[in-house]
Amino acid sequence: MSLSILALALLICLWLVTEPLRAGAPSDPDAPAREGLEAERDRLYTELATLTDERRRPDLERRAALTLRALDALPPAPRPERGGDGRRGRQLALAALGLSALLVGGGAVTFVPRWQLAALPAGEAANVQAVLNLPALRARAERTRTAPDYLAWGRAAFDTSAYDQAVSAYGNTLKLNPRQPEALRRLGILLLTRGEQGGAAPSAGDAAQAALLIRTAAQLAPQEPESQLLLGFALARFGQDEEALRALERYRTLDPQGRDADELISAIRARQTDSDPGLRVYAANCASCHGPAGGGGIGPSLRESVLSRDALRQITVQGKGAMPGFPQIRGQDLEALLDLLEGWQPGRAAAAP
Rank of each mutant, 00 (worst) to 15 (best):
R90M: 11
E342R: 09
A152E: 13
L151M: 08
F111P: 02
T193R: 15
G347S: 07
L134I: 14
G171T: 12
L191I: 00
V109Y: 12
G154R: 07
Y282Q: 01
D30P: 06
Q91R: 08
G325R: 10
Q272H: 11
L279Q: 15
A9R: 15
D42N: 05
R155D: 10
P181H: 00
D262Q: 09
R259L: 13
L187K: 02
L174K: 05
G171F: 04
L190R: 07
R348I: 08
E47H: 02
P277R: 09
G321W: 01
R186H: 11
A7K: 03
T50L: 07
K175G: 09
D164H: 13
T193L: 09
R215M: 10
D310G: 01
L132I: 01
L337M: 01
R186D: 02
A207L: 14
G331S: 14
G295I: 01
E224Y: 00
L340V: 06
G106N: 04
R138K: 07
A9I: 11
R186C: 00
G98N: 10
Q197C: 07
P225E: 01
A122F: 08
L279Y: 12
A236H: 07
D274N: 01
A93V: 05
D339F: 04
F238P: 01
G89D: 05
Y170L: 04
S2F: 04
G232L: 03
D72I: 10
A77W: 08
L14V: 05
D30K: 06
I268T: 08
L117M: 09
Y150M: 04
R138T: 10
V104L: 13
A200D: 15
R55T: 09
A95P: 00
S2Y: 00
D241C: 02
S227V: 10
P225I: 03
A234H: 05
P324D: 06
P58L: 14
G171W: 03
Q228M: 12
G106H: 07
W15F: 12
L6R: 10
A350I: 10
A336W: 12
P181I: 08
V131T: 14
L190C: 03
S275T: 11
R185N: 07
A183P: 03
R271G: 10
A217L: 06
A136S: 14
L102Q: 02
R88N: 03
G89A: 15
L99D: 01
S227A: 13
G36I: 02
E142I: 02
S305P: 00
S4Y: 06
L254M: 11
P26E: 05
G347Q: 13
S168R: 05
G296H: 02
Q197S: 14
A126P: 03
A350G: 14
Q240V: 08
Q314F: 08
P346Y: 04
S266F: 04
A234G: 07
A283Y: 01
V112Q: 11
D274R: 12
A244P: 05
F233P: 00
A152G: 07
C13G: 12
L102E: 03
R79Q: 10
G294Q: 09
Q228R: 13
G36W: 02
A221H: 06
P121H: 00
I5R: 10
R22W: 12
H290K: 09
R215P: 09
